[in-house]
């Protein structure tokens, strides 16, 4: 009986199919990692967030409900919240002990300024998350609004602003090269 209940906890419905934790990890760990890495440009933090997301997914008191959205959006929301919390904590530490926290933004080289990486990193945080989720992870506006906890209209306007800013910045870079 006990074994059966544990097994049930480890099986999750994703759309029409039932997936084990291993299958879920294989499916979603890479997309979550690439989202966090593109957002923060911090490999160590991205790896930690992936691990924390799946640990929390297995131990959360509010398990995934297929009626409330897709599993992908649920995991991305979890990862996004963990990342925001960690980044906020880092900001606090940075204010107290500035030399303890490395700042990847200041580690950019001159060549880096020409790249799309720099252009994305230069976007305001709210716009950055929207464009990453929309373009690289092909998430619809409704799911992005759930992940970021903002209205769908805000997702659209932020996406529009992000595209505009990126185009402007990359055009500038073209002229510089």
């Amino acid at each position: 009986m006990m074994e059966k209940s544990v097994e049930n906890v480890e099986m999750v419905m994703d759309g029409q199919e039932q997936l084990s934790i291993d299958q879920i990890y294989t499916l979603y760990s890479k997309p979550i990692y690439s989202f966090i890495l593109r957002y923060t440009r911090d490999e160590q933090l991205s790896m930690d967030i992936v691990q924390d997301t799946f640990v929390r997914f297995q131990s959360t008191k509010r398990p995934y409900d297929p009626l409330k959205g897709t599993l992908k959006a649920f995991l991305f929301q979890m990862a996004y919240r963990l990342m925001v919390n960690k980044l906020n904590r880092r900001k606090k530490w940075k204010a107290l002990l500035p030399f303890l926290v490395p700042d990847p933004v200041n580690e950019r080289t001159q060549d880096d300024k020409m790249t799309i990486q720099h252009a994305i990193a230069s976007l305001p945080e709210q716009q950055r998350a929207v464009i990453l989720l929309s373009y690289y992870h092909d998430l619809p506006h409704k799911e992005i609004s759930k992940i970021l906890d903002i209205p769908v209209g805000t997702v659209k306007s932020r996406l529009h602003s992000a595209i505009h800013t990126l185009k402007k910045q990359l055009e500038v870079d073209f002229h510089e090269t």
Binding site: Y33, S34, M47, T115, Y136, L166
Partner: peptide, 8 residues
């Protein structure tokens, strides 16, 4: 945007 790859 496609130039930006991120491998885990």
């Amino acid at each position: 945007l496609n130039e930006y790859t991120a491998e885990m």
